[in-house]
Design a protein around this nucleic acid. Structure first.
Lengths: 172, 172
DNA sequence: GGCGATATATATCGAAACGATATATACTGG
DNA sequence: CCAGTATATATCGTTTCGATATATATCGCC
């Protein structure tokens, strides 16, 4: 997934390592560690997906190659029914603009179904936990409740994205 | 942090590996993989923090030792000002009942400050991103907005926990 | 009662990511 | 011009992941 994210950012324009890290953090993904980033760049280089070109000063600018674009496309088009991590979805979402509108809705919809399942499971667990409460489990209960609330909010947010997408799709 | 979580759960009662994994997932932490869990158990065993005792059938029940309790306490009491990951906080929260009330508020408060910083940073980034919009960055903007909303909701939730804690503290 | 399907349970492998740390260079204020 | 901070690359050991293998227990059902 890190590879996917790096390639996606490099499609826009060449960037150096430190900048990739910063941008990744700014997208709200996660602040990837150097111990992840630089090995990832070596990896992509070895696969011929990116090329190093000297930048100003100490910087090494990286450019995406044709092969890199192909890899990005494969990842972008990959099965919308397959399971995905939270981070995986975030990265996919960030580059969703590269897909045609109907495919976008597919991706959003799958995510919605996943979250709904999670929500239902959490609800079951909460009922269970509440009935077996030992008083000092207060914070455990709070944790489960909060995870439910977050999931619910995420679903609502997704609904908004789908609605906006349909609006755009029908307007064209 | 996984070690911390395992010890915390084993303090209540002996559990076997699979059960630990399930419980960890139910607490809304994360569904830890077997490739993390079983090595973690070996690690803790080697440190003398836990002991294996045959359970029914194929199960191996693990019990916490005195040394294990000591390690748990050290982790629990560790510097409330140190940086912590999201997961780290979650685990700490789950076992917050083991701390006295005033220390609990400290932990919640530190987290609140961290989230507020994150929120402010996200706001800056959003302003920046909006002004530089290239239309198909729509989903990127949405991602940042959503991360802000989530952080905001988390802060509100924390405020509720602090209020409840103060209520309990003053009621005693 | 038995049998097939599913759930439970432990384990391991290679790859990926983490967190800490080292080091060098560029920028900035006094 | 020089000290302090921000930028930038890199690597080390450890942890975690995701996939997969394998064995046992349990449950539905004819």
């Amino acid at each position: 997934m890190l590879d996917f994210a790096i390639l996606g950012l490099l499609i826009e324009r060449p960037r150096h390592g430190y900048e990739l890290r910063r941008t990744l953090g700014e997208l709200g993904f996660w602040k990837v560690s150097f111990g992840s980033l630089y090995p990832a760049l070596r990896r992509l280089e070895k696969r011929g997906a990116i090329e190093e070109t000297r930048g100003t000063g100490r910087r090494k600018a990286y450019e995406i190659t044709g092969a890199g674009r192909a890899i990005f496309d494969t990842l972008l088009q990959s099965d919308p029914e397959a399971k995905e991590t939270d981070r995986g979805f975030q990265v996919r979402l960030a580059f969703l603009g590269h897909l045609p509108s109907d495919r976008r809705i597919q991706v959003l919809d799958r995510r919605r179904r996943e979250l709904l399942t999670q929500f239902k499971i959490a609800r079951e667990i909460l009922i269970e936990a509440r009935s077996a409460t030992k008083n000092e489990d207060r914070y455990r209960i709070a944790l489960i409740e909060h995870s439910m609330q977050s999931t619910e909010a995420d679903i609502t947010w997704l609904d908004g994205l789908v609605a906006a997408e349909r609006g755009v799709a029908s307007a064209t």
